[in-house]
């Protein structure tokens, strides 16, 4: 199977703070890769490298075989057309309504989509995520979980080939969480979408994952299948999982 994303031995420091120590991670096309790890371990930083929002101090990031680290703005814009990303804090445009937020990538992006198509696709995505009633609201009028779902709708509305989810289900109720998991699975099965999911919800993570990477103090300490991860001997991973096994 071809690889969609390869992160090769990247290092990243912010000032004196060395966040990533030689991280290597591959994501096969058409699979779902989950990244687990403690808070502040560098998960979001890795994800931002995958889409060129951050550049590594050393190492390479390859998307469909192309090293994106040296790319200039125009080439990055081109590359990002096959991506969608859900931000941890939603990052909605606060001066636009929910509808306009979700329509944004269709209206302003590269795809030429007719007005009717935009309306149809936006409404469809929003109603799947239970936001049919909130279309004309503004982000400041939404709850945290609603904002997260608008962010999801916005990332998925262009039907991208690769979707990066930064904690898509944090703050959602169990039913909506299940809905989101189903969406991730369905996108993979129906359209061969490649997904990278950062999650704190171990149950949901293991349900959607084809492969799991466990990040601890800026290095990948486990890179296996969900079933194998449960047998991990790494002390921090064991501790991390035990909280969930106890339930």
């Amino acid at each position: 199977m071809p690889t969609a994303i390869e992160v090769i031995n990247i290092n990243k420091t912010f000032g004196k703070h060395h966040v990533l120590h030689g991280v290597t991670l591959t994501v096969e096309e058409g699979t779902t890769r989950v990244i687990l790890g403690g808070s502040g371990s560098g998960k979001t930083v890795i994800m931002k490298h995958m889409i060129g929002l951050l550049k590594p101090d050393s190492g390479e990031v390859r998307v469909f075989g192309q090293n994106i680290v040296p790319l200039k703005q125009d080439a990055l814009v081109e590359m990002r057309k096959s991506f969608g990303m859900v931000f941890q804090q939603a990052a909605l445009f606060d001066s636009m309504s929910v509808f306009d937020n979700v329509a944004f990538p269709l209206v302003e992006g590269a795809q030429k989509v007719s007005k009717e198509d935009i309306k149809r696709r936006v409404e469809e995505k929003l109603s799947i995520l239970g936001l049919g009633q909130a279309m004309q609201k503004f982000p400041s009028e939404l709850s945290g979980g609603m904002r997260k779902r608008v962010g999801l709708a916005r990332a998925l509305v262009t039907e991208p080939k690769i979707v990066l989810y930064d904690e898509p289900t944090t703050g959602l109720d169990p039913i909506t969480t299940d809905n989101v998991d189903q969406m991730i699975l369905e996108a993979k099965q129906k359209f061969g979408v490649t997904s990278v999911v950062i999650s704190h919800d171990i149950a949901s993570a293991l349900r959607v994952a084809d492969r799991v990477a466990f990040l601890h103090e800026g290095t990948i300490v486990e890179d296996t299948s969900p079933a194998e991860l449960r047998k991990s001997q790494h002390p921090f991973v064991k501790k991390f999982l035990s909280t969930w096994f106890d339930k």
């Binding site: 889409i51 929002l53 931000f87 990052a91 944004f104 590269a110």
Partner: peptide
């Protein structure tokens, strides 16, 4: 103020990710 708020709340990053050039 407007662009600064958009920057620190990652709205500019979100725009970049959607392949829209914020400049």
């Amino acid at each position: 103020t407007e662009l600064g708020t958009m920057r620190v709340t990652e709205q500019i990053d979100a725009m970049e990710v959607m392949a829209v050039d914020p400049l």
